[in-house]
Design a protein around this nucleic acid. Structure first.
Length: 422
RNA sequence: GCCGAGGUCGCUUAGCCCGGUAUAGCGCCGGCCUUGAAAGCCGGUGGGAAAUUUCCCUCGGGGGUUCAAAUCCCUCCCUCGGCGCCA
């Protein structure tokens, strides 16, 4: 959510942005309107409380002297009724203001390409050799061939879009995690295993409200949600705190299993393990001063591209446009891996700079020489295992359906070089 | 899960029994002093609204009693110790 400062001091910035996103400016206008209403009520309430406090003090003094104070006490009755009403109105006004405020999306970086939908996204770079003169098997066919996953029985005991990873492929998943973790730890990221469940209040600080309907699984009797990414608990970790950034940005490598409902997601290319309800992921999370966030955004994107380069998977970097970027990010880059069976680039990484949008909602600040300010939060996939595995299976397949293990992963596979088809 | 002790400003802490402006130290910021620094001394160090000086809120969260609640009562959350259960 945006700071009230922006609504009060430079609302034109918000209007311009909403225009870029093709959204009406009514929501922002209603926030400004409700804010004025709230401020009037606060002022009124303060006046009433000031009066109450003086009367109360007088009573204390009269009582001490032993003088009768029943006259003064009478004044209090009406005052208290007014105050109760005022407090109710004030709370309601603030709630409505902030529920509207949460609907106003983040301010975009000026470089974000203008576009209606994902067709407006811009390719920034491309790496790797693409060979389309051979017959490529799909990752789901290879999975079957190498006995890498058991989707059928997973659906029997849990449901659609769940899986058992088995044998060498399960081991390859751990290798991917180890590879990404080692790389990030060497760069000073602090490895963090978060809770996999979060309560509603904390969760509201880090996601778009519609995610509660479409993305998160809820544990009903406990006010808990299964996390959709370790970014959520790691960012929310410092809710209502003043963090110390004097020694530079806080860098975390989060590792977790992630749970997603994927409501409304369909498509033939989503078969296999591409789009699933549960997957492991190593995530990068940064908390930094505003002046550092652009540099850090580049760093986490570079880390992610570095991983795919070392895995020798062809990829390209996409600059997400205004129509596709969503509510929270101010700038977002995706990395798409080449999937030869379908001749398509498909998303494997998303790297976002959320600026202060999350920290405002979380009431997380850092100390400056003048006081406190809201830090910027950034997040990026390092490696989401199921998608990276699918990309490896397709790109590293041999003519008879074996899979060559990427060189950088072999040390975690007992130096095994290949996964043989059965 | 049960019993006991706790939760006070960035950190530590007094105040709670017995209701009436939240105490002190550390840290941090600024100033004096200094060639520079440390020490020392002085001032400032939670949030909001209004504008130069004031008002309001803030003692884990919520509710109640009261003219008045950090303080009394209820309730929930969390931490520590003990017991129980347990990978």
């Amino acid at each position: 959510m945006l700071e009230m400062k922006v609504f009060r001091e430079s609302p034109e910035k918000i209007f311009e942005d909403l225009k870029k996103r093709n959204l009406p400016k009514d929501i922002a206008l209603s926030v400004i309107d409700l804010d004025n209403k709230w401020r009037k009520l606060i002022e009124e309430g303060n006046r009433l409380r000031a009066k109450r406090n003086t009367i109360s003090k007088t009573i204390g003094e009269l009582k001490k002297k032993g003088t009768d104070f029943s006259e003064v006490l009478k004044k209090m009755t009406n005052l208290k009724n007014d105050l109760v009403q005022n407090e109710k109105d004030t709370e309601e006004a603030l709630n409505i203001r902030d529920s509207k405020r949460m609907l106003v999306p983040n301010l975009l970086e000026s470089e974000v390409p203008i576009g209606k939908d994902e067709n407006g996204n811009v390719e920034l770079s491309k790496k790797g050799i693409i060979n389309d003169n051979k017959k490529w098997l799909s990752h789901q066919d290879i999975l079957e061939g190498i006995n890498g996953a058991d989707l059928k029985r997973a659906s029997k005991i849990t449901g659609r879009r769940f899986y058992f990873l088995t044998g060498d492929l399960a081991r390859l998943e751990l290798a991917l995690i180890n590879f990404a973790v080692e790389m990030l730890c060497e760069k000073g990221y602090s490895l963090t295993t978060p809770p996999f469940l979060m309560n509603r209040e904390a969760y509201e600080g880090v996601v778009d409200l519609s995610d509660f309907e479409d993305v998160m699984y809820k544990i009903d009797e406990h006010d808990l949600y299964l996390i959709a990414t370790s970014e959520h608990p790691i960012t929310a970790r410092f809710k209502n705190e003043i963090i110390e950034l004097k020694e530079g940005p806080l860098k975390f490598a989060g590792i977790s299993t992630n749970f997603r409902r994927e409501v409304g997601a369909h498509g033939i290319s989503d078969r296999g393990i591409w789009r699933v309800h549960q997957f492991s992921k190593v995530e990068q999370v940064i908390l930094c001063k505003p002046e550092d966030s652009k540099k850090m955004h580049k760093e986490i994107l570079d880390n992610a591209t570095n991983i795919f380069e070392k895995l020798e998977i062809p990829y390209r970097v996409i600059d997400i446009c205004t129509g596709d970027i969503g509510t929270v990010a101010a700038r977002k880059f995706d990395i798409e891996a080449w999937m030869p069976s379908t001749n398509k680039w498909k998303e494997v990484v998303s790297a976002s700079n959320c600026k202060s949008y999350q920290s405002v909602r979380l009431n997380m600040r850092y100390r400056t020489s003048e006081g406190t300010d809201f830090p910027h939060t950034l997040n990026s996939t390092a490696v989401a295992t199921t998608r990276a595995l699918a990309a490896i299976l397709e790109n590293n397949q041999t003519d008879n359906g074996d899979v060559i293990i990427p060189k950088v992963l072999r040390k975690w596979m007992g130096n095994q070089e290949i996964i043989k088809a059965k």
